[in-house]
Design a protein around this nucleic acid. Sequence first.
DNA 1: TAAATCACATATATTATATATTATAAATAC
DNA 2: GTATTTATAATATATAATATATGTGATTTA
Lengths: 225, 225
Amino acid sequence: MGDNCILIVDDEQRMRKLIKDFLVAKGYSILEAEDGEKALEVFENNKNKISLILLDVMMPKLDGWSVLRQIRQESKVPIIMLTARGEEQDELFGFELGVDEYISKPFSPKVLVARVEAILRRTNKDQKEVKSYGGIEIDKEGRTVKVDGKPIELSLREYELLVYLVDNENIALSRDKILNNVWNYDYYGDSRTIDSHIKKIRHKLGKKGKYIKTIRGIGYKFETK
Amino acid sequence: MGDNCILIVDDEQRMRKLIKDFLVAKGYSILEAEDGEKALEVFENNKNKISLILLDVMMPKLDGWSVLRQIRQESKVPIIMLTARGEEQDELFGFELGVDEYISKPFSPKVLVARVEAILRRTNKDQKEVKSYGGIEIDKEGRTVKVDGKPIELSLREYELLVYLVDNENIALSRDKILNNVWNYDYYGDSRTIDSHIKKIRHKLGKKGKYIKTIRGIGYKFETK
DNA sequence: TAAATCACATATATTATATATTATAAATAC
DNA sequence: GTATTTATAATATATAATATATGTGATTTA
């Protein structure tokens, strides 16, 4: 989970640079895409890193709405649409698809930065330093995990797998999905490998290992009951 | 956690009524305040209920900014500011104080409702999609089924068969159709197999098992009556 | 080089299916 | 309308098929 990486999607190189400069100055790291197809590609490869997307509506190949729709099928990442003035009809349409904000061109970069920060503030507000799940405390900043107050040692993969499960509490996750999100998307390894890691995590969690439920035929699910 | 109660703060009675009517139509419950002081009072007494505040900037006694500042000292409740056109300077100032959104007057009520819903959607991220069919609740994300509130355990096939029946509520499904949809279409097994699974599902559903109707000579149908 | 990751083999547990038997509903004859 | 036949479904159970847990060793990474 990279800290506050922002994806800028716009076909105008000049516009991307303008936005980028302002955001970099504020300490964000930036990814860019020059059309809708590239945007989806970049998003796929950096799902976990990206914490906000600035998405132009008018683009060649695949327009902003199509990109929005596709991303919303699998992710709730905040999205700000960049539009030309006077498209109120579209606004409504977009809100239904989960647009977080509209900014119409031309805009003042300061306003843009302010809106980005407002959204990220709101998003990060439930990312308390330490969250507890039925006695399993996870401190993402410190990358540490405690069980009933006692710290346990998890390897990199173990930690990331556990965090992924926990971030998707109560959701059944297929092995494919787990591989795509915890491993690199282009990883073609044996999906049994997940089992090995699950086993180790369960063992380290002790009694609380049972919170990781096996969903036969599918994968796993984290559930504290 | 009251379900989506919204506080409207505006000195114009007419404006409050306008907004209120639209939001009530969408199923929200409403609290009102006609100036800043009243707003703080109402907020104090209903902190836990209120999930969003619509706050006018220009008000007698205590203006919107002051109210915003005071509320932000103790709460992160989403706030939408209602402003007159052309106050970009103020916008920046507001974002720093944690304003979630601006809507400038005059506005179309539809846009207002859309923005409210966008923000609440973002805020309540645990609005799981659970559908209920005559007391049988199915949570597809979690792949769990409850009968009268009590969870039951279904195997992969049982779960998928039940979901298929339920997704086609009130439609008679032939065994062939069921085999093609729940099993792989290149499956050449005995179609009596379905009966076995139906039996198990009915048993696990208890009294509600009777919602799975037998259509003699054809197959089965899910119907909650 | 030690720790971590991964693949694979085997044991174990679970689930799916086929088969046999019983029960039930529909069709037919009386 | 009732009894008998016939077709179909329900049920129980045994066996086959499948998925997961676990242990081990090879390979990679830091």
